[in-house]
Each structure stands twice: as C-alpha cells, then as structure tokens.
Write a protein that binds this DNA or RNA. Structure first.
Lengths: 137, 137
DNA sequence: TATTGTTATACTCTATAACTATA
DNA sequence: TATAGTTATAGAGTATAACAATA
C-alpha cells in the first residue's frame, strides 16, 4: 500500500495506525486469513500479528473466527465496519494515483513508466549482487 | 537519506538503526548541531532526540559538547568513528545512485527525470488541495 | 514431531507534560 | 518570559523464547 502524509493522517482519524492499515489492506486482498498467513504476508513475527489483531478486534475492524478444519488456527475476518474502511482505503489509493497521473500526456507517461521499469529492474538485480555495505574502519 | 533493505541491514551490522542513521546523516550535512536543531531538522520531539543522542553517544558515534555561547545548549558532535561511518554512508548512497542510473541512455534518463518532476509537483500541489481522506460510514 | 497462536520479556521509536538551568 | 534539554510516563511496533493445544 502506498501512503502519503495526508493518508496517514486520515488513518489516525479513523483510529488506525500504518501497521494496522497494512493488515487490513492484506485482508482486503486475500479474504479471511489465518494469523500465520498474515505474518508471512506482512513479513513480521506471529507475536506481532497477535498484537495487531488484538487492537483491530478491540476497535471493531475485525473478528477472530474459528478455522473450519484446523482447530489450532483462527481466521481473521472483517466486520462490516472493517470491510467498509478497507474499501474506502482502496478508493483513496485510486484517487491518489489519479492525482499523480491524470491528464499527463501519454508520451510523457510512457516515457516515465519505461524509465521507472528500468530503475526497478536495476534495483531488483543489484540488491542481491552488489549489496551496498557500510564500510567499517 | 534513501535506504534500501540491504543498506538497512548494513546499518544493523554497524550497531545502528534507521532513526539513528538519519541523525548521523543530518549531522554529517550540518556539522555540530544543537539537539534543538536536530529535533527541527528531523521533525521529531526534543525528547526523542535526547534518546537517540544517548544511544549514539553510548555506542561511540557522537559526543555532547558544550555550546560556546549558550550554556543551556549542547552541540552534538561526531567522534572519529561516527565521522567515518557517516562518510561510508555517503559513499553507499552514491553507489546506490550509480546502481540505479549508471549506463542509462541520456535520453531515457532525461525523460524519466521530467516525468518524475511532474509527479512530484502534482504530489506537492495536490497534497494540500485534495487531501485524500478515508471516507467514514 | 511440527505448527498455530499465546504469554513473557525486552528494546526502539515516538509523544506530551512537568521541571531545571539558562537566556 | 521564553528556550534547551532532561526526567517521568505512556503507547505502538517489533523481536525471540517458552508454552499449550492441535495436527
């Protein structure tokens, strides 16, 4: 999820933090998910997910439902309020994209997109091969 | 300061965190600075600076020196180790830029840069006028 | 045995408020 | 009175390790 400052402030007004919003975002795109699944998707510890889900459940965005076949697991699931909030986040995301690109001449956009692809490809390839490392002395 | 994952990991190996590295970065570009100056530059609270400087002083990156004319203030100042680390960070930054752009045809680079300028201008103008806001329900 | 999620513990970043020393 | 920095307190995100329930 791409966030600018205004979006971060909106989240705060909704009683959300960036980490909690990321969890909602993931849930919105995956549907009901185990905490293990969320931990892997967000690349954080299981313990961390416990805390985030505790907070989101306490403020009415999600509930913990029993997994239908695995009694160890819980399925984190949207409440109606959580679902509506996630849809609003998606709308804001699209509005943000429009703000950045609407009305940009097609030629400039294509050219920018190609340059960005290039940069991203370099980043992907270079990040493993030539890991920058702070030199020690 | 622009950081990729590899750079963040390097910082950790040096005993630094991202927040502490940002403080060093600022210090490297400003020279000895009061804690108040750092708080304003990094846009965090004075209390936060106290904690970061405590940590950086405890691990030998900086010292607190008396301000020559204002006895309330302290000047946060590099140790030799801190100075060397900041220089290494700057080298890594340049290496990162080379990774992203070296050997890119001038035409593609110019075009990308123009598109980026355009996007950044939209972001600056739009961020106040059309602040995206998560709709409530 | 391996996995899911919790409890226990700890560290870091962050903030506001009250306070001391100085300007 | 105002400012620089600290102490006091609190909350959020993050991690590892030990544990219980279940697979």
């Amino acid at each position: 999820m791409l966030l600018n400052d205004d979006m971060t402030h909106s989240l705060a007004r909704d009683g959300l933090t960036v980490s909690r919003a990321h969890l909602l975002w993931e849930l919105h795109h995956r549907g009901p998910t185990t905490q293990r699944g969320l931990a892997d998707a967000l690349d954080v510890s299981a313990r961390n997910i416990t805390g985030l889900v505790d907070a989101l459940a306490g403020t009415g965005f999600v509930t913990r439902e029993p997994h239908p076949t695995d009694r160890r697991a819980t399925l984190v699931t949207f409440t109606r309020h959580g679902e509506a909030t996630a849809r609003a986040m998606e709308r804001d995301q699209q509005e943000f994209a429009r703000l950045l690109f609407d009305g940009m001449p097609a030629q400039r956009f294509d050219c920018f997109a190609r340059g960005l692809d290039d940069v991203l490809a370099r980043l992907r390839e270079g990040s493993l091969a030539a890991a920058p490392e702070v030199s020690r002395d």
